[in-house]
Amino acid sequence: MADPEKLFRVDIVTPDGLIYSHRSSIIDMRAIDGQRSIMYGHTPLLTSLAIGDVKVRRSREMSRKVDHIAVNGGYIEFSNNTATIIADSAERARNIDVSRAEAAKERAEKLMKEAHEKHDQRSLERAQIALKRAVNRISVYNTKK
Score class of each variant (00 low, 15 high):
Val98Lys: 00
Val66His: 14
Arg100Pro: 00
Leu124Asn: 03
Arg23Ser: 02
Met39Asn: 15
Asp16Gly: 03
Asp88Leu: 06
Asp88Ser: 09
Pro44Asp: 14
Pro4Tyr: 11
Arg64Lys: 12
Leu49Arg: 03
Met1Lys: 05
Ile96Pro: 01
Val135Thr: 12
Ala130Trp: 03
Val54Gly: 09
Val98Asn: 00
Val140Asp: 02
Leu7Met: 06
Glu61Asp: 14
Lys132Ser: 11
Asn136His: 11
Ala93Leu: 03
Ile27Asp: 02
Asp3His: 10
Val10Gly: 13
Glu109Thr: 05
Ile19Gln: 04
Arg57Ala: 03
Asn81His: 01
Asp33Pro: 00
Ala103Tyr: 10
Ala103Gly: 10
Thr84His: 09
Tyr75Asn: 11
Thr47Leu: 10
Ile129Glu: 06
Asn80Phe: 03
Glu106Lys: 09
Arg58Asn: 01
Ala101Phe: 10
Asp16Ile: 02
Arg23Ala: 07
Arg60Met: 14
Ile69Trp: 01
Gly34Glu: 13
Met1Arg: 04
Lys110Asp: 02
Tyr40Thr: 15
Gly74Cys: 10
Leu49Ile: 09
Lys6Pro: 07
Asp28Pro: 07
Ala101Trp: 06
Lys105Asn: 08
Lys55Asp: 05
Asp28Arg: 15
Ala90Cys: 05
His42Tyr: 12
Leu7Trp: 02
Ile76Phe: 10
Ser123Gly: 10
Asn142Lys: 06
Arg57Tyr: 10
Val66Cys: 12
Arg57Val: 04
Asn81Asp: 15
Val10Gln: 13
Met39Val: 13
Lys113Phe: 07
Ser37Val: 05
Met62Asn: 13
Arg122Cys: 01
Ile69Val: 10
Arg23Pro: 03
Asp11Leu: 05
Asp3Val: 08
